[in-house]
Computed example of a mutant assay.
Amino acid sequence: MDNHRPHPLVIVKLGDTHARLRKRRGDFEHWIADGLDSQTLPLLVIDPRRGDTLPEPDAVSGVVITGSHAMVSHREPWSERTAEWLAQVVAHGTPVLGICYGHQLLAHALGGEAGDHPQGIEIGTVTVTLDEAAATDPLLQGLPAEFPAHVVHLQSALRLPEGAVRLAGNAHEPVRAFRVGTNAWGVQFHPEFDAETMRGYVDTLADDLKARGTDAAALRDRVAETPTAAALLGRFARIAEAHRHA
């Protein structure tokens, strides 16, 4: 029997949601923790922006990188430090899931490129279309070929790292999901968002969307629940739990 405390499943917090949403519903790390629902691994939230020390790769069971309202291409010092650490974590084989900003940062950390999406902001509930490679992917296998997911982003992973496998994409967003190696994934959507959170983002950004010529009310009406996307957090937790016992 293993009496040692297991290494934590780490949520690396790189951003905060809007203040109004945070007051009502909590923040990224709370939504992610709810979705992970790990029964065997302790959760640890680390915020490099405030100077938290990033743990050694062999001291964690898995890593989730949150979204952020910052931009990867701005190369903030805390972001670049996290990118250097991420490369070490991936090299060690520790399971990683990058969400939105985390997806883009993972691509950047491993030699790809993140930057502005040529068509500007994408927001609302969209359809994720899986590639053939997803059929044998440990995180995505068995999911429907298409499923809804929530998005809000200005930047994208414009170029994947060498050797990365694209797992999902479509005409608007060529890389919705990718994997590097056997245990590191990025997703350009938010599995931690529910429909109320997504509507909150549309409402908060309504004036900006209007200025860009986007009908926020129509976007809001199309927001739907996304149970398949949400299930990815629990799937990732199972991968981290299995890695801990490997």
Rank of each mutant, 00 (worst) to 15 (best):
E113Y: 04
G115T: 00
G115F: 02
P118R: 10
G120P: 04
I121H: 10
E122M: 13
G124T: 06
G124H: 04
T125P: 11
T125E: 07
V126S: 05
V126D: 00
V128E: 10
V128M: 10
T129Q: 01
L130K: 00
D131L: 01
T136E: 14
P138C: 12
P138I: 13
L139S: 11
L139M: 02
L143S: 08
E146L: 04
F147P: 10
F147T: 05
P148S: 00
A149E: 09
A149Q: 03
H150C: 11
H150N: 14
H150L: 08
H153L: 05
H153R: 04
S156V: 07
S156L: 13
R159I: 04
R159E: 15
L160M: 10
E162M: 06
R166T: 07
G169E: 02
N170R: 09
E173C: 12
V175M: 08
F178W: 15
R179T: 05
V180K: 05
N183R: 13
G186T: 07
F189G: 07
F189S: 06
H190S: 04
H190M: 02
P191Y: 02
E192F: 08
D194T: 06
T197V: 09
T197S: 00
M198R: 05
R199H: 14
Y201N: 01
D203S: 15
A206G: 03
D208S: 12
K210A: 15
A211L: 09
G213L: 02
G213I: 00
T214Y: 00
